[in-house]
Lab assay of single mutants.
Amino acid sequence: MTYKLILNGKTLKGETTTEAVDAATAEKVFKQYANDNGVDGEWTYDDATKTFTVTE
């Protein structure tokens, strides 16, 4: 399945996607991606759209 991440960081905004077997796996990938890019904030997940959002 394809999962999407929306980044609403103070210095980085954008979107990315990943292929993962489940939401938990996608979340690990996205949290590492956000961490690597210096984005740390509040996370939400919408199962209907398979979209994670992180907002600083």
Rank of each mutant, 00 (worst) to 15 (best):
N37K: 14
E15T: 10
K28Y: 10
A26T: 00
K28G: 08
V39N: 03
T25P: 02
A48Y: 12
T11G: 10
L5V: 04
T25M: 15
A20P: 01
A48C: 08
L12M: 14
T2K: 11
D46K: 03
N37L: 15
A48F: 12
T16E: 06
L12G: 08
T55H: 07
N8M: 11
D36G: 06
N35Q: 15
Q32A: 14
K50L: 12
T17P: 02
D36K: 07
N37F: 15
T25C: 07
A20Q: 07
G38D: 08
K13A: 07
T2P: 06
V29D: 04
G9Q: 04
L5M: 05
E42T: 13
D40A: 13
V29C: 07
K50V: 03
D47N: 09
T49R: 06
G41K: 01
E42W: 13
T16S: 08
Y3H: 04
I6R: 06
A24W: 10
T44N: 11
M1K: 12
G9R: 04
T11V: 12
K4D: 02
V39K: 02
V29N: 07
L5R: 00
G41I: 02
A26F: 00
E19V: 15
A24G: 09
K4G: 04
K31G: 03
T49E: 07
A26N: 00
K13E: 06
A23V: 12
A26S: 02
T16N: 06
T2V: 13
A20G: 04
Q32V: 09
G14P: 04
G41Y: 03
Y33K: 03
V21P: 15
L5E: 01
A48G: 09
D36W: 07
K13M: 09
W43C: 02
V29E: 07
F52T: 00
N35S: 15
I6F: 06
E15Y: 14
T2E: 11
K28D: 06
A23W: 14
T51V: 06
Y33I: 07
K13C: 11
L12Q: 12
D22Q: 03
E42P: 04
T49F: 05
K31N: 04
F30S: 00
T11Y: 14
Y45K: 01
L5F: 05
K50Q: 10
T44M: 12
I6L: 07
T16A: 11
D46M: 04
K50S: 06
E56G: 05
F52H: 02
K28W: 09
E27W: 14
L5H: 00
V39E: 03
A23E: 07
Y3Q: 01
T51P: 00
E19W: 14
Y3M: 02
D22R: 03
N8S: 07
V54C: 09
A34S: 05
K10M: 12
N37E: 08
F52D: 00
K50Y: 10
K28S: 09
T55P: 01
L5I: 04
T17Y: 14
A24E: 11
G9C: 11
T51H: 03
K13V: 12
T17L: 09
D47V: 11
V39Q: 04
A23M: 13
T25A: 13
E15G: 07
E42F: 12
T25K: 07
V29M: 10
T51F: 02
V39D: 01
E56T: 08
T49M: 06
A23L: 10
T53K: 05
E27V: 05
D40Q: 14
K4S: 06
D40H: 15
G9E: 03
T17V: 10
A48V: 13
T2S: 09
A20E: 05
T2G: 05
T51Q: 04
Q32T: 08
G38N: 11
L7R: 02
T51Y: 03
I6H: 05
V39F: 14
F52I: 01
Q32N: 08
E19M: 14
T2C: 13
E15S: 14
V29T: 10
D22P: 01
W43F: 04
T49G: 05
E56R: 04
K13T: 10
T53P: 00
T53V: 09
D40S: 15
L7S: 03
D36H: 09
K50P: 00
K31A: 05
D40M: 14
E42G: 05
L7E: 01
A23N: 06
M1G: 12
Y45I: 02
T11I: 12
L7A: 04
E19A: 08
G41W: 06
G9I: 07
Q32F: 05
N8R: 11
T51C: 06
G41S: 02
G41E: 01
E56A: 07
Y33W: 14
N35T: 14
T55D: 07
A23D: 06
Y45A: 01
Y33N: 02
E56L: 07
K28T: 10
E27F: 15
L7C: 08
A24H: 09
Q32Y: 06
G38V: 03
D47W: 09
V54M: 05
D36F: 08
Q32K: 15
N8W: 11
T11N: 15
N35W: 14
D46H: 07
T18N: 03
E15C: 13
K50I: 03
L7G: 02
T17I: 10
K28V: 11
N37D: 03
F52M: 02
T49Q: 06
T44H: 13
Y45P: 00
E27P: 00
T25Q: 13
A26W: 01
A20M: 03
D22A: 04
K31S: 04
G41A: 02
T53Y: 11
A48S: 12
F52Y: 06
M1V: 14
A26Q: 00
V21N: 11
T55F: 09
A26C: 02
T49V: 06
T55E: 07
T18W: 07
V54L: 09
N8Y: 12
L7Q: 02
D46L: 04
D22K: 03
T18Y: 10
I6Q: 05
E56Y: 11
G41T: 02
T16M: 14
K10I: 15
T49W: 04
